[in-house]
């Protein structure tokens, strides 16, 4: 018997196959799946926004109004600001939405601004201040690599003030230090990008494997039917163009 659950599993497999069919050629079934995805994704995001709003503001206001109005009355302000966001659709009052955006970006930026100097800079710099001499040669080598490549990368990203070579004159020692670190930086980053490339393959293939295991393999027949339909849609598309 075809229950909603069974039909859902078939539909899931078909959605995957139709979206993958785009890798071969654009077709009507891909377009259908794509539009279904956009519709559900947008609806989902609105619903989850309502859910978050409900759990943060509405539920406490409805269930325990006294405590809410005593302690959390200030929620009225962001609710009003949030409603002002809809003013962006007005030609005349679009600027009202800026008040909500202003609060959002200011708080976001302020929160990041106050801890980023410690988290992103101080802690990274202190982690790079390492002993360059010692009894353990492996550790010493690792420390040299860490220090030189970090300095090199930072040098590579210097876009404002750096030693330049004056034509005709002998380059200064500062210039040579700069150039050496610059190249160490580039080669260091190539190592980083190599690792990134290899890990990208891992992730992308991992996505494919899990999709096969979760959606396609359990519903092999539905997938085959969906693939045949996609093939027909591709052929029809080609014939129509001719």
């Amino acid at each position: 018997m075809i229950t909603w659950e069974v039909f859902g599993a078939w539909l899931s497999a078909a959605m995957v196959v139709w979206i993958y069919s785009f890798a071969y050629r654009d077709n009507a079934l891909y377009k259908l799946a794509e539009h279904m995805f956009v519709g559900t994704a947008a609806g989902y995001s609105i619903a989850l926004a309502l859910d978050s709003l409900n759990r943060v503001v509405v539920a406490p206001a409805v269930r325990s109004p006294e405590t809410f109005w005593a302690a959390s009355w200030h929620y009225v302000i962001p609710v009003v600001l949030g409603v002002l966001m809809f003013a962006k659709y007005s030609r005349k009052y679009y600027w009202l939405a800026r008040y909500a955006v202003a609060v959002n970006i200011a708080v976001g930026s302020g929160l990041a601004l106050r801890t980023a100097p410690i988290a992103n800079i101080v802690r990274q710099v202190t982690a790079t201040i390492l002993p360059l001499w010692g009894s353990d040669p492996v550790k010493v080598l690792n420390n040299w690599i860490l220090v030189l490549v970090t300095l090199g990368g930072l040098t590579y990203f210097l876009f404002t003030i750096f030693p330049r070579r004056v034509e005709g004159a002998r380059p200064s020692p500062a210039y040579w230090v700069y150039r050496s670190l610059y190249y160490i930086g580039i080669y260091g980053m190539m190592v980083g990008f190599g690792a990134l490339f290899a890990n990208t393959i891992m992730t992308r293939v991992g996505f494919l494997i899990s999709i096969y295991l979760i959606y396609i393999q359990p519903e092999a027949w539905a997938s085959i039917v969906a693939a045949v339909l996609a093939a027909v849609a591709i052929i029809l598309g080609i014939l129509r163009k001719r």
Partner: peptide, 15 residues
Amino acid sequence: DWVVVITSFALIVGG
């Protein structure tokens, strides 16, 4: 918390 509330409205506007 204000940002939590305003972001929810922003998501609705996006939809």
